[in-house]
Amino acid sequence: MLKYLTRRMLGAVVILILISAFTFFLFFAIPQDPAMLSCGRNCTEGNLKVIREAMGLDQSIPMQYWEFMKGIVAGRDFNVGHCDAPCFGISFDDERMIWDTIMDRLPLTVSLTLGGLVIFLTIGIGLGMVAARTKGTMIDKTVSSTSLVFSSMQIYFLGPIVLGLLVYNTGLLAAPKYVPISEDAIGWATGLVIPWFVMSLIFTANYTRMARSTMIEQLQEDHVRAAKAKGMSGKYVFFRYAWRGSLIPIVTILGVDLGSLLSGGVVTEFTFSLAGLGRLAVESVQDKDLPLTMGVMLVSAAFILACNIVVDALYAFIDPRVRLS
């Protein structure tokens, strides 16, 4: 297991380096001087020269990339002060440390992701198990039909409808906003309840359908039938054998969804006017802010790779037949 995880982490580092190189060199294909973004309206050649020297833009592109990667490991010195590792540089737009900006936006994205995850994972798997145990009944047909309807919807469609019904027309709930949980736990929950609700409607449908199909498949396995033939109760067989075997495909899609949500749910954050990593990524591209784009890109990619590694490691714990090599 340790060798496998070490190999996967080394591979993840290589992937992150390739992503950083591709993003960095692609940025300089844009026909615009990055120093102009910080120079302001009354810009002169003298001011541009000073800005280029302060940002390191007077160096060759490969040297700029080397300094950027070195800063992630060992930190860098700028005219506004020292940037501790991991240092993604200073924003071209507001000359703020990129790492500080990312850390300001990250708590909202994590809160949005984990809160929604708990809800849609619990309800989705629960409804899928109920539908599988009652296969062919009215309960199964109702759950399956409802899941099919909601899985066909998108957040940018369902979100405004829920906002119109619960916020703007009836005033039952307040408009979504983020309050740090350390300041006000109740305000934190109430401010994100609508995004959690909308995310849950869509993601729950996917997990319900997946849990139902995999559970029905597991109930037909030979070892499950053998357990029933030995006189074990249906409830015991269901939870001891069938439920555990159905977790692998669920964990697989969970790893993909979790990595994507942690890297910044762009559509979700724009739909509910929330400023997390997803919105920050779009803003950095619009402002042509290379250090900020690089920082968000690498943090997002690291989340996705980490989730994939954890999912692969969980396979061996869920199913003893799986061997990591």
Rank of each mutant, 00 (worst) to 15 (best):
K3D: 11
V14T: 12
T23I: 11
F24L: 09
F25S: 05
L26Y: 10
I30A: 10
I30W: 08
P34M: 07
A35W: 09
S38K: 12
R41T: 14
T44G: 09
L48A: 08
V50Q: 15
V50C: 00
E53L: 02
G56R: 07
D58Q: 03
Y65R: 07
Y65Q: 06
F68H: 10
R76Q: 15
N79K: 07
D84F: 13
S91V: 03
S91Y: 00
F92C: 02
D94I: 05
M97S: 03
W99C: 02
D100N: 14
T101E: 15
M103A: 08
D104A: 13
D104T: 14
D104Q: 15
L108S: 03
T109W: 05
T109H: 06
L112M: 13
T113N: 09
G124C: 07
G124E: 04
G126N: 11
M129H: 01
I139R: 10
D140C: 00
T142Q: 03
V143W: 11
L148P: 00
L148K: 07
S151P: 00
I155R: 03
G159Q: 07
P160L: 05
P160N: 07
Y168W: 14
L173I: 09
A175V: 11
V179R: 04
E183M: 06
D184S: 14
D184Y: 08
A189T: 03
G191L: 11
L192R: 09
I194C: 02
P195I: 08
F197Q: 01
T208R: 08
M210I: 13
A211C: 10
L219D: 05
H223D: 13
K228W: 11
G234Q: 11
G234Y: 05
K235N: 10
K235E: 12
F239H: 02
A242R: 05
A242M: 05
W243R: 05
L247V: 09
T252P: 04
I253T: 15
L254T: 12
L254F: 15
V256M: 14
V256N: 09
L262D: 01
V266P: 03
V266L: 13
V267H: 04
F270R: 13
T271M: 02
S273E: 12
L274G: 11
L277P: 04
R279E: 11
L280R: 02
A281M: 15
A281R: 04
V282S: 08
Q286E: 14
K288F: 12
L290Q: 14
L290V: 12
L292G: 04
S300R: 06
V310R: 02
A313P: 00
Y315P: 06
A316P: 00
R321T: 03
S325H: 13
S325L: 11
